[in-house]
Amino acid sequence: MNLPEPESGPAPARGRPAWRRFRRDGQSVAALAVLALVTAFALMAPVWAAWTGHPYDATFPREGLDAGGRPVGPGAEFWLGADQLGRDVLVRAAYGARVSLAVGVAAAALATLPGVAVGLLAGYAGGAVDTVITRLLDITLALPALLVAITLATTFPVTSATAGLVMTVLVIAFFSVAGFGRVIRGQVIALREREFVAAARALGAGHLRIMAVELLPNLTAQITVLASLLVPTAIVAEATLSFLGVGVRPPTPSWGSMLGEGGEVFRTAWWLLAVPAALLLLTTLSFNLVGDGVRDALDPRPDRAAGRG
């Protein structure tokens, strides 16, 4: 759950030119198209279920398992094969896509507000406030996030699927705030000394006004990039927790839990590994490409644009 830290730079250009630059970037546009497809796949989950006649939590031991109890592969009845309980992998993957996308976007969105708030406050206030906030953020970053999440899941076992989903989102968001806050703080410290802040202060603007009206608009590019790069990190975190059985709870399918549950039978049923793994990889890769593309478009320094590093 480590946040990638883009280097700080001058306040980047915004508006139409950025969109034009993004559109010219073939890789990022392709990645955006992939994300649109994955989203459509997720939205159509009930359609897949109705079409195939296989609800996501229904088992079909007769059709889905062969005489030896092994899951059947992709075919006319199960387009992407069946899993070890005879459930439809296609339908489950589509519902899993809903979980991945929802958790990724929700966790990123939930981390953004407090991340921006603490970063803005620490960077602008400086002094003791800054020291206290920075120390607290450092402590959060020093926590072994995965283990704390596991501890939380075992001490507060959830019973309903919704509770599992909500808790997963909250845990991921919590651990993402610190990284976010630190990057924003660095940006604010660089912006704080600029002339337009001094000018606003000379005109009698209060601290709140300076933070909200002068500084915040200058941070939008940075915030957009951080938030979009946080989505794939959150998706991986959710998949990891669900893989270990402490994230999204059954019967709700998740790509992570599909990989975790199928572990025993991969050797004979490759589709149980290939389908969720490929979807997961495609989604995180696309989000990363889009995030990098947004960063390059908003901050067109030649070194950055070409290197993507």
């Binding site: 998949a239 990891t240 990989l259 572990g263 490759w270 990889l281 990363n288």
Partner: peptide, 19 residues
């Protein structure tokens, strides 16, 4: 290659290698 590495969840890599 770096981007692929950063986008791969740890257990996916492990499962694929194992398989």
């Amino acid at each position: 290659l770096v981007l692929a590495g950063l986008s791969t969840p740890p257990f996916v890599m492990a499962l694929v290698l194992l398989h």
